[in-house]
Design a protein around this nucleic acid. Sequence first.
DNA 1: GTCCGTTCCTAAATCGTTTCATCGGAGGTC
DNA 2: GACCTCCGATGAAACGATTTAGGAACGGAC
Lengths: 348, 348
Amino acid sequence: MAITPAAGSSRSASVKDVAATAGVSLGTVSNVLNRPDRVSRTTRERVERAMADLGFVRNESARSLRTGSTHSLAYVMLDAGNPFFTDVARGIELAAETAGLSLFLCNSDGRSAREGAHLAHLQQQRVQGILITPVDPDDPQIDQLIERGTPVVIVDRTRAGSSFCSVAVDDVLGGRLAVEHLIDVGHRRVAYVGGPASIGQVRDRGEGARQAWAEAGLPPEDLVTLSCEAPTVASGRAAGERLVGLPARRRPTAAFCANDLIALGLLQQTISSGRTVPGDLAIVGYDDIEFAAAAAVPLTSVRQPRHDLGRRAAELLLDEVGNPAHQHEQVLFTPELVARSSTRGRSS
Amino acid sequence: MAITPAAGSSRSASVKDVAATAGVSLGTVSNVLNRPDRVSRTTRERVERAMADLGFVRNESARSLRTGSTHSLAYVMLDAGNPFFTDVARGIELAAETAGLSLFLCNSDGRSAREGAHLAHLQQQRVQGILITPVDPDDPQIDQLIERGTPVVIVDRTRAGSSFCSVAVDDVLGGRLAVEHLIDVGHRRVAYVGGPASIGQVRDRGEGARQAWAEAGLPPEDLVTLSCEAPTVASGRAAGERLVGLPARRRPTAAFCANDLIALGLLQQTISSGRTVPGDLAIVGYDDIEFAAAAAVPLTSVRQPRHDLGRRAAELLLDEVGNPAHQHEQVLFTPELVARSSTRGRSS
DNA sequence: GTCCGTTCCTAAATCGTTTCATCGGAGGTC
DNA sequence: GACCTCCGATGAAACGATTTAGGAACGGAC
């Protein structure tokens, strides 16, 4: 039996300790760990016994220092509080799990500084690759990561230069779908409630909205843009208050929101101030998160294939990590409008 | 200037390369990194210049191998798709950021196997400490972590033995509050819609419900328990269908759901099947996530201080990591009922 | 009895960083 | 001018795993 105490010792057991306990050399222990077929059954069992007795846990730092490769990926999320991104993350997780890598989730919370800190740390950790929904896809730190050898895949954004892969959904088209739908059901004065213009998705969806508006031959001044501080439920409520403040003549009869969180906030404020949806205000959201269908008035929304978005992104990253002949690819998914009561009528 | 190419070289620059480029010794580079005040200004600048030119990135594996300590914590979440846990995570993040540690989020998704894999990997990574909302707090793997020297704090659960810290909310009390409220507003036949009984929170909330019911002197058979496969929106919808299937005489007039996701699903199914809330069915949720207030009918819910829960848990972990005189502590927060339209009447 | 081929194991070098004992030189003191 | 002190910089020795070249033991064939 083992001589060393089984657990609770001040320093955790190393291969050396295991070797000593099992009465074999270091290399043999390593072989048991990495190439068990090269070790005879009796020796292997003796070593495994020693590992169990000592509570041996491989030191990943040493391992990856020597082999030069960690076994992990990371996804830097723009907003972990937004179900859209957790769904994307789930798709990524699935692919990572299948490939036997572990995935670390980091949350930048929309703040460049946090994002930068995460990226720096991940780079120091030498993760195999990074998936990121960036605050700003043009951030030079992203290029720097790639130059220094960490593969990066941009999720839910694209960029002109193609020094990396990206997976996104056509946000301009999504914006068009939303506004075309509102025009279809008869609205002629519409608000686009976006988050801060610093967010690319917000700009693109707004651009799509403008295109649809212009193509319908409607006067530009009747598509008003309200921008929020952040794409959150609270901002949506605040936007609702601003909307009410407008003189009735100029008040929009419908709102297209840059995401479902804003839309839910706007919906909540509208209803609690005694107005009706879609009677007084029709609302279209974006993302079609699970809660959109469960809202006070089920929300019309632009659906993105969020799970596939994540899965595809992870697959591209894994290819880039493992396949020397990897070609960068810019995948663009197509969004889809899901019409519900918030734009259609009273029935759910 | 630097002789070595600035970037894109096959192998990233090490301290040795920096030392050679700057014309100093290894130790000096390390001093610049770790104790800059011990290095003269001119030398320091020369070294910093070399680091910039070479695109030097510290290798965290080597660093933590040598120092024996990483600079990271991890939170293993039960369900990243549930806003309750992402809010808890946000509280943890805040505390970790303040302490200058980085936080890895892992998602067990309610599956023991995934949780185990994450824990094993984190242990190999030698993270400083682990916060976890476990699938099962009695899992021996958790004790094993502690025995082998990784501090663990249990979040949103407690356990009798106190070989670790925990931060939780009094779920039995929460269950009582919910059911007392339903009794108060006149309900005499109530359903408890729980997730799978394997989840401790589900059991405790049910226990509280039973206690309140018994204390009110109501017959036990009028508090029916419906258990779902998983605490999700989809399960809530399914539970709604089962509820409708009951004969009118035995059908509950109110439902207390083990969390808000179930409640939202139930609410959605109830309304879309043409019944009203709270007229045909009053609903109480649990967690008071942001979406509860924005639901079809604003949801009465039992609020947990989720942000504080996370923050406090992280503080306890940080104390355990840094303070040799650390005492394990079992923190219990008190939940609070937030009454809204789903149990009260028509006005919001 | 020698030679050869397996099979199984050993010993030593290595990854990149930190740390610690040491050392050279500049400047001050007697 | 000898001696001491400090400051700043040095170089070797770790940390714990993997890898590779090589060696001992053993059996079988000639």
